[in-house]
Design a protein around this nucleic acid. Sequence first.
DNA 1: TTACTTGTACTAGCGTCGTAGTACAACCAG
DNA 2: CTGGTTGTACTACGACGCTAGTACAAGTAA
Lengths: 132, 132
Amino acid sequence: MSEMFSLSPSHPMPLYAQLTRAIQFAIATGRLRVGEQLPTVRQLAVELRVNANTVAKVYTELERSGILETRRGVGTFVSARHFAANHHEEHEKHLQELVDRFVEEAGAMGFSVDDLLDQLQSRRTKETKINV
Amino acid sequence: MSEMFSLSPSHPMPLYAQLTRAIQFAIATGRLRVGEQLPTVRQLAVELRVNANTVAKVYTELERSGILETRRGVGTFVSARHFAANHHEEHEKHLQELVDRFVEEAGAMGFSVDDLLDQLQSRRTKETKINV
DNA sequence: TTACTTGTACTAGCGTCGTAGTACAACCAG
DNA sequence: CTGGTTGTACTACGACGCTAGTACAAGTAA
């Protein structure tokens, strides 16, 4: 494990957000598997040259989302619960919220839902998306 | 013109952003037509109980985007240039950027483009969207 | 030119957010 | 129990963004 994740302090996106995304992405793409242990808060903090609290906040937040599971004195792990049966409902809800925001923003710019559909359609055929 | 726009100071979205959206939306829906004059910076500031500078910044920004046109000593108007022939390319570019962000965010959450398409599809049939 | 309108530039204050520092609490292994 | 690990709570500082205040510049109309 040379470098688990990588952050750019100069990037406008805050460190904690970058790390959150990185972890979610790693799980979604299978680079982190269910049950697997993540680096220690301090360990990852040193590696990323970041305060331990920043890492801890990310872990806490992801635990709240049900993605991670943490045991004091042991470590933090990729949760199995998140991938259980009832997970679908929650996940679906997130998707709905995301699309809500998206449609709203697009509307303010004068785009219709159909415009968005067209754009997305062209992407579907053009690119080969990473499959989880 | 009782109240051109309305803002919520308590809303987390900053005033300038609210106003920007409101103006864009008014133009997109035809409530403000090409060539029409907008309220004066100070006039609108008083009406919205906001500093004149806040309104001015919004006007300036929208002028940069080519949506408005301002003439000193006269006022600010809805630009015709923005709706010219070459406007389409630029507008299309904005749409692409928006969709880029969208797909990226969704990807981080583990959603595929097809998932997004499904969600959007259901919205298209469910709601009757405002047509510009 | 002069009076009055318009938008603009500069500055300061305030709040919020992100991050780091430090000290604490829970847990495991011996 | 004891030493060392783990995550956690609290606090404070710095930076940035948003808004307001004030003074200025450019244009119009008489």
